[in-house]
Design a protein around this nucleic acid. Structure first.
Ligand SMILES: [Mn+2]
Ligand SMILES: [Mn+2]
Ligand SMILES: [Zn+2]
Ligand SMILES: [Zn+2]
Lengths: 168, 168
DNA sequence: ATGATGTTGAGACTGAGTCTCAGGTGCGGA
DNA sequence: TCCGCACCTGAGACTCAGTCTCAACATCAT
């Protein structure tokens, strides 16, 4: 009955449709991913599992994320850094992101008018869109008040704490 | 008098303002970058220089691209692949991209209404934008007519020929 | 319960991008 | 014009995200 169990069932349905199996590792990853709403990196997820003493290899984390993206349970997004971030999907709540280059915070927004305008542009160019990725980088309200300056477009910023790398 | 010389002068101005120097290597890179309009990868640029027997190291290509981005002469964009693409900037012709996941072609568009809508969203969220990155992935007209299917969001596509890697 | 088939973990591997440092170069000042 | 010093370059080591390999293991339809 908890919502997470339902996501696990959806994942199992997806997997069995492809002749694939729901394993302990995959289950605990889904549980972790759906337990909070945030934008995480693959290695960050690996680290969290380690912290919780759930033994899962890097390879399995990456393989499972790929499956979750294919199944539609997880979305892979660019947030202005060099690597991907992931976030779980509930329902079909599409949104895009404002990313603060000063503090790394991420603001989500969903603007139907903006989405429609994109469709109009595609129609005009006879282009059939399948998905899109929009990040607006800048400075959030609280950082702006602190006098933080905007970063230049080549800045590599840090979203959250980062993955606290501890490979090996 | 050729336009390229003007870009080189602008680059030199930028450099000397920082106490940095215009070198042979930097000059020939600017010349190459502004000689055609396309979306290129760093290693692709390196390869082109090799083809033209202009000896430049990988490190210098990356370092110069960073300087060019800082100076505003070059823009770094995400086009749905795992690594960056670059394009030269003439004037302030901001645009975003439609990327065909079937053939890799890139369509540029500039839609003031879309841009304005983004500013409105930022204002509503009290967010001070500095720049943004929008890619719409899908299938272009000619690929659509050939019956090409849209790729899934985790697809890694190939834009252009790729860099024809030949590191070493 | 069983076994065919899919999955896992350790670690090697890849590819883009960064860093180091010894030797080379641009250019402002004399 | 020449000099010197700060800046720049190339070769290759290094980093880091992500992928692959393969022997041992787990899942689940039957
Ligand atoms: Mn989000
Ligand atoms: Mn472009
Ligand atoms: Zn902020
Ligand atoms: Zn196409």
């Amino acid at each position: 009955m908890p919502a997470i169990e339902r996501e696990i069932t959806r994942f199992q349905d997806f997997l069995s449709r492809q002749g694939q199996k729901l394993t302990q590792e995959r289950t605990s990853l889904v549980r972790e991913i759906f337990s909070t709403h945030y934008h995480f990196e693959a290695d960050e997820l690996l680290f969290k599992m380690k912290q919780k003493s759930v033994k899962i290899s890097r390879a399995t984390v990456y393989r499972t994320l790929e499956l979750l993206v294919k199944s539609g349970l997880v979305r892979r997004v660019h947030l202005g850094e060099e690597h991907y971030h992931y976030e779980h999907v509930r329902g079909d709540s599409h949104h895009d992101h404002l990313v603060c280059t000063a503090c790394g915070s991420v603001i989500e927004f969903n603007d139907p008018e903006l989405e429609q305008r994109q469709l109009d542009i595609c129609a005009r160019k006879k282009f059939t869109p399948t998905f899109h990725n929009l990040q607006i980088l800048g400075v959030c309200d609280s950082c702006h008040r602190k006098g933080e300056q905007p970063a230049s477009p080549d800045r590599v910023m840090t979203i959250g704490e980062g993955a606290m790398k501890l490979r090996k």
